[in-house]
Design a protein around this nucleic acid. Structure first.
Lengths: 344, 344
DNA sequence: ATGTCTGATTTGAACGTTCATATGAGAGGA
DNA sequence: TCCTCTCATATGAACGTTCAAATCAGACAT
């Protein structure tokens, strides 16, 4: 039962087997160009035969870098509705695997006091830097990290510091503008907006996109907007008056799929049909959007993770400016005035 | 700009500051009972003052254990509908933080050939063992790990080996039985089932629960079942004949929320109302269920992660038997024949 | 006074790498 | 022939811990 943990090959085992020194094996792995061609193939053969991989711990110790990046996980757990961040973590893991590095997910015991958890990760030398998500106004993290010279890259703008460029974000305003244009093209004549309470930069950005678009296209009014937290019942409640305002032939764009789901319910309550009678567009392309058939704006997560990781892996040459990517409009039945058959 | 990475305190810094040896500091951290009380407080004060935490890498190297557990992430990425595994990863991270250990998410380049990726993680000494999810028939992983004496614990039964006890699972059959009983209590008279294609052990288990319950309660027929893959359009297509069979006053239980969402659409297509006319119950309590107001069975993820981690952290005393937990029925409007107002 | 035991603390060594430096073997020029 | 240079490979040291063994200081018994 208690079979001794099978002895894994070390660099010395390989060195002995190939009759070279440790350093030569190390060079084969890390600087192949320094090794004579025939030695290279001989050592590489032994590496493959023995299944040798450098011990991450030993390498970390010597090089004083962990080869891993911390990602704070919201301590409120999986109870949040329609978060795109779970998908981000998954995508980030995939991207990391391809870049010979790792993600260290960690949780702050109290999500309102995140710094202590970052401190802890650094003190244990578990990560070389961090990936920030959920950046916000008065976010203490960017400055704290910058002051200490700790590398980081953010998914989401670093809002309070325009000189900070280590971020990748999606142009929410442009995305919403695209959505409004699309709705107008589809024949909707009035476009309202349901967003989050003012103060969330992401939400405010998306709202600004709506305001600009309806102004430009003449399909809306400053007053046609509602506010709700990211919660279904609250969204439904806030959506009702908006549905009454725009009525059949109108549409509502939302700061999130969860809010759009609320609109969807309010539309149904009034005996109207999403799409056919009232257009709805959400944001993030979560499961909720797919099951409701909601048109939505999809963030290019794969590209985001690749760019975030690139910032960290080339930390010596910081980007000249933050990166803004465009979300992609995913058309579904909620923004079509004709029936789209659901099945093939 | 290139401020030298701030020098973090090592055990030697603390030792010098407290005027004791390295080993005494180590004892303060790891075996406080070995240290004289007054020395303890003095050293602890310096530890706190300097913010010392043992370097994980150095500890890993010396102890030959990583203090981390590998979790394979599905390389197909975040595109899957209604996966409960994202939530599992988040919950696991939170539980790990509380137990002074870590989760190492990693991806297999080809998800059909997972072993190589596990091999890689072990060879790099990145993890001491693994947490398996998505256990299935002909799963090569449990045996492979067992043969090598590598600790693991599974979320999901180890189906092919009844002697294996290192798993925690949810009683899907009992959950579905509960759902059927609930539907009968609510006044639905016929209960059909929409599941995944035969061969998925999780799906077969859930189907068995339905078969048992409808047989016992006399509310169904062996023939009243449909099959679809975990995809919305397929589910909608498969749901249509079932809706026609059970009709108003009938109900359909499903192997997942995604399938339930398909039923939900099919019910609407027929001009019927979920809940009021046709009952629907899903499985997993994903966002989709919340947004659609679907009654569903929630897996107790926090308890699952705690037990999974407990198995790994007490690997020397393997559990006597696999652990089966019960899912919790979450009642929403899709299983109520009277209107439940959505808002407060 | 001497020896023995116990508990607290210290010292030496090792975990597996990589960095910096040293050595060795040829090649080429004087 | 000898010196210099270059390229390939080898050696010593160090990263920060913890394990095992050694030392030290008292307490107690003889």
């Amino acid at each position: 039962m208690s079979t001794r943990q099978s002895h894994r090959a070390t660099i010395l085992d390989v060195a002995r087997a190939a009759e070279v020194s440790r350093q030569t094996v190390s060079n084969v792995v890390n600087s192949p160009h320094k090794v004579a061609p025939d030695t290279l193939v001989r050592v590489q053969a032994e590496i493959d035969r023995l299944g040798f991989r450098p011990s991450r711990a030993a390498r970390t110790l010597k090089q004083e870098r962990a080869g891993a990046w911390g990602l704070e996980i919201d301590a409120r757990g999986a109870g949040r509705l329609g978060s795109v961040l779970d998908a981000f973590l998954v995508e980030l893991t995939l991207t990391s695997s391809r870049n010979d590095t790792h993600i260290l997910p960690f949780a702050a015991p109290d999500y309102r006091e995140p710094i202590a958890a970052y401190e802890e990760v650094l003190a244990s030398r578990l990560a070389d830097g961090f990936i920030l998500t959920d950046t916000r106004h008065d976010d203490p993290r960017p400055q704290w990290l910058r002051d200490r010279g700790i590398p980081f890259a953010a998914f989401g703008r670093v809002w309070d510091d325009p000189t900070e460029t280590a971020w990748v974000d999606v142009d929410g305003a442009a995305g919403v503008e695209t959505a409004v244009s699309h709705l107008v093209d589809e024949g909707y004549q009035r476009v309202a907006f349901l967003g989050w309470p003012t103060g969330s930069p992401v939400g405010d950005d998306r709202r600004a996109g709506w305001a600009r678009a309806v102004d430009r296209l003449g399909v809306g009014d400053e007053a046609w907007q509602g506010v709700a937290v990211q919660e279904l019942d609250a969204a439904t409640l806030a959506a009702r008056p908006l549905v009454d305002i725009v009525g059949p032939g109108g549409a509502i764009v939302c700061a999130s799929d969860a809010l759009a789901a609320g609109v969807w319910r309010a539309v149904h309550e009034r005996g109207l049909r999403p799409g056919l009678d009232v257009g709805i567009v959400g944001f993030d392309d979560t499961d909720a959007a797919r099951v409701l058939g909601l048109t939505t704006l999809r963030q290019p997560l794969t590209e985001i993770t690749e760019r975030v990781l690139a910032i960290l892996l080339n930390a010596q040459t910081p980007p000249a400016a933050g990166t803004v990517l465009h979300p992609e409009l995913v058309r579904r039945s909620s923004s079509s005035r004709t029936v789209i058959p659901p099945a093939r």
